[in-house]
């Protein structure tokens, strides 16, 4: 048991060391959701993402940590997130956001923190098909198993998006194409806002 515990702690240290991956992923996801019409990971179904009410962005760690929470400003000025673009220009990254994920007939609303990418308050907004048992009622075990299927789909979708990001992040195209593309978009909205 002690050995298992030590090995778990090994992963904890690795997690701390690579904490920036989740922050980069959520920032990339938000920027791409603003620029592109959707995501298609490894030939899978098209996934649409949009961020809802607020975004929390942060730079630095420990005592030098600076964070800002930006509200959705509506599309009146061309972007819903003028403050968030300014924060990204100042090297802040998305730490948490409430978003919608639409994949095929399913649509989810959830909060996604950058450190774990574990869904919080995840609700299925559309696409649920609850199966009744012989009495015309959904049995409690049936309800649980249905939801396990839905949550498996949700975590699988997040995992596919993360995989897509990591492959890009670890390729030469990240520095030569993707990062300049995203920076140009951030600069555009920051200038227009400024």
């Amino acid at each position: 048991m002690a050995e298992a515990r030590e090995r778990t702690i090994d992963y904890f240290e690795l997690w701390q060391e690579k904490m920036f991956l989740g922050e980069e992923f959520l920032t990339w996801l938000w920027l791409c959701s603003e620029i592109d019409s959707g995501f298609a990971a490894d030939g899978g179904p098209k996934v649409e993402i949009w961020f809802e009410n607020s975004l929390k962005l942060q730079s630095g760690q420990g005592p030098s940590k600076r964070s800002v929470t930006c509200q959705n400003a509506g599309k009146e000025n061309g972007t819903e997130w003028p403050e968030a673009f300014t924060a990204v220009m100042k090297n802040k990254k998305v730490m948490n956001g409430r978003l919608r994920i639409k994949s095929e007939e399913r649509e989810w609303s959830l909060a996604l923190p950058a450190d774990t990418l574990c869904p919080k308050s995840a609700k299925l907004m559309a696409g649920a098909e609850f199966k009744d048992d012989e009495d015309g009622k959904l049995s409690k075990v049936g309800a649980l198993l249905d939801r396990v299927v839905y949550y498996t789909e949700l975590t699988g979708t997040i995992e596919a998006l993360l995989s897509m990001f990591l492959k890009l992040r670890l390729s030469p195209e990240w520095a030569s194409e993707e990062l300049p593309r995203l920076r140009a978009w951030v600069a555009r909205w920051t200038r227009e806002e400024g």
Binding site: A4, Y11, F12, K18, L166
Partner: peptide
């Protein structure tokens, strides 16, 4: 039984 937290880096090590 040992558990590994599934967070960005550990998921990456599984899928890449």
């Amino acid at each position: 039984l040992g558990l590994r937290l599934l967070v960005p880096v550990t998921v990456g090590l599984e899928v890449l």
